[in-house]
Design a protein around this nucleic acid. Structure first.
Lengths: 220, 220
DNA sequence: AGTAGTAACCTACTTTGAGTAGGTCGACAA
DNA sequence: TTGTCGACCTACTCAAAGTAGGTTACTACT
């Protein structure tokens, strides 16, 4: 749970350990991604140039292309890191709520979700939402992953309650739920005085009734 | 209700009417936007070059910059046209359902929405969803417009039922609802054998229960 | 008819930034 | 001593956005 800055500082210290700028591949890779994340957050995708990135790292462009790859690949890697962290955060919260109570689970997951993006507004905005991101494969693939996770969870939880659901249905519902999450994340950006807890309440109140009725009634 | 192709053909015919390629400003503008729409759909934002666009129109680049503006402005204008058409389509359907019945209104709106994007998959994908669009101001502004429309409708309809709601709450709910729409639109792309009507049913079943309970209970 | 003004259009750039070809330099192994 | 390998560099190419400054034809007025 270290912040991005601290992580970057750790990496930088380790980089300086090595001789005349000659840094092993894996460490260089982590350094590139950490610095790229900052750059994308500050400038946005389009305005962040590979030349800038190279300069900040203190290295020439071909090194980036050798170690990570093209600009969109660098971006995708950054998004992936954030997605992993978010998924872990939410999964832990939902698991903590126990499998029995659908309401508690949804509410805990929603809270964890809003908590996470609330703590990293800038990061979230820059990498996933609105202005200027090229909404590449990267964003789509993280959506798919989140959708699948939620769908799997819905299926498992329905099964645990003895009311198995159609997987396709669960997939569609999961997608819609995540779409609502994303949208509320954007809404929050324009109404920052709201708390994560209020958002989670609203989300739960809005989605839970339909969710239970849909999943409990049938598999149509 | 003419399709994009027919509209383009009409414009082209009118363009050919005029003398040696000398076309009045307004007509040229409509021609540029119609052709640009096709180009963006075929190639996506990034891969569609202004040179290509100019060549297709049969004109040099500065003309585009003079009449419409920079690449992102051209894109925004294209998105705006689609957004207008969608909004009109949905609004008409909802109005047709009458103000009294919340269920019928939501269901009709959802159906109109899915109908619209179903008929123009390519267009929708290219302009608003996933891969490669720079998710600029354009997309954000159309979201805001849709959100506002839904929010206004929610407030009005709640008032008509004698249970006024907090506008902020309505705004948040509207945003979440539209986020779910967008997400299901993407989901549909991966499950094309579903019908618009099925999607509308699913959407209604999922959102309506929470919606009514949220809006009818209180303004908290 | 002659001429001024202007709307529509053009050629030919500049600039920016992604991506690459083909090297240097030092460490360590045989 | 020489080979080779890993980390890194200079110095490009290429594509595409955006622009400066001109040209042409049509209209309107004298």
């Amino acid at each position: 749970m270290t912040t991005a800055t601290t992580e970057l500082e750790t990496i930088q210290r380790e980089v300086e350990t090595h001789g005349h700028g000659r840094v092993p591949r894996e460490l260089r890779r982590r350094q590139i991604l950490a610095i790229a994340e900052d750059l994308f957050v500050e400038r946005g995708y389009a305005a962040a140039s590979m030349d800038d990135l190279a300069t900040r790292i203190g290295v020439s462009k071909p090194v980036i292309y050798e170690i990570v790859g093209r600009k969109d690949v660098v971006f995708e890697a950054c998004v992936g890191r954030v997605a992993d962290a978010l998924a872990a955060h939410v999964a832990a919260a939902v698991a903590g709520a126990g499998p029995a109570d659908e309401h508690a689970g949804l509410r805990a997951g929603a809270l964890a979700w809003f908590d996470f993006i609330g703590e990293r507004r800038g990061l979230w905005e820059a990498l996933l939402s609105s202005r200027d991101v090229p909404t590449t494969e990267a964003v789509e693939s993280i959506r798919v992953r989140q959708d699948r996770w939620v769908a799997t969870h819905l299926v498992a939880s329905a099964e645990a309650r003895g009311r198995p659901v159609d997987e396709t249905l669960a997939g569609a519902v999961a997608t819609a739920m995540n779409g609502a999450f994303e949208a509320l994340g954007r809404w929050w950006h324009d109404h920052p005085h709201r708390s994560a807890s209020e958002l989670a309440d609203l989300y739960t109140d809005l989605m839970l009734p339909g969710l239970t009725s849909l999943l409990d009634v049938a598999d149509r």
